[in-house]
Amino acid sequence: MYKVIKNEKINPNTYLMEIEAPEVIKNALPGQFVILMGKEDSERIPLTIYDTDKEKNILSVIYQVIGASTEELSTIKKDIFAVTGPLGKPNEICKNPEEYKKRKIVYVAGGVGVAPVYPQVKYLKERGFDIDVIYGAREKDLLIIQDKLEAVSKNVYYVTDDGSFGEKGFVTNVLEANHDKYDLCVAIGPLIMMKNVAAVTKKYNIQTIVSMNPLMVDGSGMCGACRCEIEGKPKFACIDGPEFDGHKVNYDLAMKRMNIYKEEEKQKWEQMKKELGTK
């Protein structure tokens, strides 16, 4: 059991959870992920690390309620059954910042993808980087952690699908308009966004890193559920990733693989809602 400090709603379907987990955060670097299990019989949920407070030993994650397991997670109050991590490889830039000192870096965040973007920008800011962030969401109400993001970024360009905040349109519009300012892009968000960003950066020959978030079971290289096709070869997101060269990912395949348990997941969500509702 791990102590939950906080588990609060930060927008209509997104939660911020803080957990006391000294061993998880001790050696953690931005880009790595954790696996949470709400209760002993819960599913294992992979989530990229949002923030770490190494003085207070606190790990923070941000998650969206999208199914049975995240629905259950949102009801966890005092203790959480399991927190495993850090897992996966750290972000390449954060691991070797000196090698990237001269690069002109832009981060592109889509939806809750802003949660894993934030710690990278923060980490690099602390090491003297000035980084622009393009942050897109469907509408104004879905934007999160704006203050924290602005505090560590040089510029934040907001984009909403409906124009309710910042520019109207998609992150790719802003990227297209500013492409000549950058030579390195890190994009984290929905697969379709990463696919579209990679198409733009490919056109302008901008090196691109994306973070994959496929289905996973153990998260330690054992099951192969998370395999992604990178340059025609299967790679395990849990140990070979989760970050990959954005120009080498087969996004269409990844999107199809996200739907493997669609029917089962729908059923489990109904089952969970009933269970939580009656309790």
Binding site: E23, K26, Q32, T84, G85, P86
Partner: peptide
């Protein structure tokens, strides 16, 4: 001690 990925959490 479960939930501890050696190599990452501890080397």
């Amino acid at each position: 001690r479960t939930n501890i990925p050696i190599g990452n959490a501890l080397t």
